[in-house]
Design a protein around this nucleic acid. Sequence first.
DNA 1: CATCAGGGCCCTG
DNA 2: CAGGGCCCTGAT
Length: 318
Amino acid sequence: MTELTYTTQFKIVPTKPFNFDATFYKPDHFTTDDHVYETGVRWQTNRWNGVPLGLKYESVGNVSLKVTVFSGKKLDTVFIDTLKEEIIYRYNLNLDLTEFYTLGKKNIKLAKGIDYLYGMRPGHPSSLYEYLIIGIILQNAAVYRSIAMFRALLTTYGEELLFDGKKLLCLWKIGTLNNVSEEELRALKVGYRAKSIKRIDEEFAQGKIDELSLRKEDTETQKKTLISLYGVGPATVWYLLFDVFHRWEVFDHISPWEQKLYSHLFLNKESATVEELLKYINQFGKYKHLAVHYLWEEVWWRRKNGEVFQWLEKEIRA
DNA sequence: CATCAGGGCCCTG
DNA sequence: CAGGGCCCTGAT
């Protein structure tokens, strides 16, 4: 266990309107043991330039954000400045929602979602490497199993950090799995995914992918690069484009299980065709996936706040 | 008990 | 470009 005793603080003022809770907590995200959330606060482990950190995000009246960085050693200014930029990027704290809201409010259903989650940003705590690990354990498994795999991996190869009275696990450093055999990974019940996880780790360790420069490429290049990674197919690419590369307009992939969920979500019925669903979502133009994010998160937040959606319970098998 | 079908992807033919 | 196989696990 590593105790993180150094602290650095800074403030971020996001664009308005800002909703801390809906931005820093997504009830449908399944990862465990690497974060704790309570109203107005999120503790999150993370690595920046390979350095394990404890991050504490606090809402200051839903107007600004207080960030406390816990580290094992003193951090220099460049490190902190780039970390701050990265946080702004990952949680989309500079996103201007005006245009999307104007468009979205023309649709009664989405208007309700926007109202409920007013100021919410899309966003994800993970780097591309970390998200790829998550994406791979999502494949061909229901939620409870993905959780089990994530927990097993994190417990075995992650690093235990103690900060601000919280004991949380931090995902391993790129290259860690180099000395781990495929058999050893399989023992954690990740199955055939062991091979993909190892190969992704290897490719990143060799520096074949540079996340920051890939962000600057166009969508097609990003798609091509991602799908070339072993174990990454269309479904995983689609998640990555939204959560890691912030492509709000890409919404062209609906898998059978999502088809059922979106039928309820968009059209309040049991089973709509993929064409029907895509047609519905096309009205949101360059904000297609962002619109879905609002509709989707609305249901999850309502569920968290006590409302019951039978169709959701049936499908998620958490 | 055995068999099967997944919240994909790779590989083969 | 269609379809079999894959780790596991719960459902039947």
